[in-house]
Design a binder for these strands. Structure first.
Lengths: 145, 145
DNA sequence: GTACATCTTAAAGTGGACTTTAAGTCAATG
DNA sequence: CATTGACTTAAAGTCCACTTTAAGATGTAC
């Protein structure tokens, strides 16, 4: 059973748009050690599909709240081999804990935003009980602060 | 039926810690026009419970993704009276739309973070199918990218 | 063979949201 | 009545994550 691997490579511009970043940002990430590019005969960066997967993974981590510095730490540990798996796991779990806390807060913020939108809409359509104040409206809904 | 209103006032330091900000941040918000403080006989800022409610409300809006500039716009419209309610409503609805889009993205990021944590844990306890690659693991779970 | 897009580097600049500094005022306490 | 701590202002500084600039090299299209 023979497997044909597509051997596609990308310039920094192609690569950048494939992962949704700018070329300067890719260079910046490389300077920070988050990725390393191969080079062609004239020192131009060459990227592969594996690099795409890697950057997309980094962006997922970043999207959960990890800073560039956190990512650097992760990448450093990764380069050190399997004995740093506990470190990486702890970092990811802390990230998750922070994320979940933020998540809860943000849901409360959304609730207030929704309440305010509904309050304005009631006010606009004249459905407001005698121009009820927002604070009283919230109290009536059982939403604090 | 007589109502006793507690007439408590706060210095900037007390106020700041009550709303979870620093005194310089309160001054910064005042400079930006997000709030205005009363002053005592020696020009020191004086805040009330109403101000606390107001700042907390602003922080809820801020927590849904509104920038200081968005808040300034909101406050400006608010000061112009009820004819700007449609403007404010539109601003809040746009904020909500942006928020919901971000929310969905971030949930996907969390999914990948969770998958990676579980993958590491499987790897640690030796429960990994022959050191299955993360990409294959994701594919098996039906999680893209 | 020349124009043009795209790449290369190092270094400086940007935006947002504060934070810090410096120099001074004021009220209360010992 | 001097020290202390909390306040006042304006202006400069900080942090993060990029972005922009400048000056030059290279490969491709006509």
């Amino acid at each position: 059973m023979q497997t044909l691997k597509k051997r596609t490579t990308y310039s920094i511009g192609e690569f950048a748009s494939l992962v949704g970043l700018s070329a300067p940002t890719i260079r910046y990430y490389e300077r920070e050690g988050l990725l390393k590019a191969h080079r062609d005969s004239s020192e131009r960066r060459v990227f592969t599909d594996v690099d795409i997967k890697w950057v997309k993974f980094l962006l997922h981590l970043k999207g959960t709240g990890m800073s560039i510095n956190d990512l650097k730490q992760y990448v450093t540990w990764r380069a050190m081999g399997d004995e740093t798996i506990p470190n990486r796991l702890a970092l990811l779990k802390n990230t998750k804990t922070d994320f979940m806390n933020q998540y809860r807060e943000v849901q409360h913020h959304l609730q207030i935003l929704n309440d305010k939108i509904n309050w304005y809409e009631a006010k606009e359509t004249g459905n407001n009980q005698d121009s009820e104040a927002f604070a009283d409206y919230l109290k009536r809904l059982g939403h604090t602060e």
